[in-house]
Design a protein around this nucleic acid. Structure first.
Length: 289
DNA sequence: AACATCCTCAACCGCTTTGTG
DNA sequence: GCACAAAGCGGTTGAGGATGT
């Protein structure tokens, strides 16, 4: 026996809300509150709607201080940073953006931001110019290549952090996209569960699921480990590969517990991937080189 | 102008989590 | 600790509008 339905489906209205229904719901909640019971609310408010539907309509549309319209660049960056770190936990992301709903952010991510970060559009339409500029600005490294022990001014560090967040979000999006299409896995450079990077950024522990290796059509390599001001984020880069576990293990001299260790340059050489960028961690900030 | 295709976003569905007795 | 109900959440759908051919 399945779960009992939350309401009598035969006697509830579905589909778009009319202005009259909106008014009824808004006025009822403003005068009486939700009473902590969404199931009973539609009946009390004189609405032929499911309680879940009322809740959604209120939270996503009628609630005061809801922000509609374009997302700012700052909001984009916050979404990217959080997506890179926690994935599609939309409610948590929404909690960091006052006035935005989880549904809004989810829609925005799936329809626009992801494509913007991945740098492509499946559309036959020409990209809108300001969107193109935003994308270029967003993904452009905002600083010169740095080496050795040189330091960067804090404003650059802040920019670097955002660039790293964008790259991390793009990597997460690319991985999601790729996995959706192929159910293949990625070689991970210091992923969430094992980020072990040497002080100069040249060496990482890598872990990878050898049960499900995929072949990639476009080789992308991201490697990033960065700090924010509160805690270190062990965000790993992912390199889609066409090598089997045994081959990788042999090339890198790993062990048998699903984890292999090696210097990044060896990994690049072994897997034939391209080094498109890496982040060095020094003190509280990271560099891009 | 007509049709096809794509994009957006509100709303729904069903699973998971939380609260209560 | 268990069972049940309600709320919360994330994935998916589909109507309607925009754009391309």
């Amino acid at each position: 026996m399945g779960r009992a339905p939350c309401c009598d489906k035969a006697n509830v209205k579905k589909g778009p809300w009319s202005p009259e229904e909106d008014t009824k719901l808004k006025e009822f909640i403003e005068n009486h509150g939700t009473g902590g019971n969404w199931i009973a609310l539609p009946h009390k408010a004189g609405l032929k709607r499911c309680g879940k539907s009322c809740r959604l309509r209120w939270l996503n549309y009628l609630r005061p201080n809801i922000k509609h319209g374009e997302f700012s660049a700052e909001e984009d960056r916050i979404i990217c940073t959080l997506f890179a770190n926690i994935g599609s936990r939309w409610s948590i992301i929404a909690a960091q953006l006052p006035g935005r709903t989880d549904n809004d952010i989810k829609n925005y991510w799936n329809t626009k931001l992801k494509k913007k970060l991945l740098g492509f559009t499946s559309s036959k339409r020409k990209p809108i110019q300001h969107q193109q500029q935003q994308q270029e600005q967003f993904l452009q490294p905002s600083f010169e290549i740095s080496t050795g022990n040189s330091t960067l001014p804090s404003s650059s560090c802040q920019n670097n952090y955002y660039t790293a967040a964008a790259a991390a979000a793009a990597a997460a999006a690319a991985k999601q996209e790729y996995q959706m299409k192929s159910s293949g896995n990625f070689l991970m450079f210091g992923g969430e569960t094992s980020c072990s990077t040497s002080s100069d950024g040249s060496c990482s522990q890598i872990s990878y699921d050898y049960n499900n290796i995929g072949v990639l059509h476009e080789q992308i390599a991201y490697e990033h480990c960065f700090y924010d001001h509160k805690f270190m984020l062990g965000m790993g880069g992912e390199v889609p590969i066409d090598y089997g576990y045994e081959e990788i293990k042999e090339l890198l001299g790993g062990n048998n517990n699903n984890t292999v260790t090696g210097c990044n340059d060896n990994i690049y050489a072994a897997t034939g991937t391209t080094r498109v960028g890496s982040f060095k961690v020094q003190e509280k900030f990271m560099y891009y080189h």
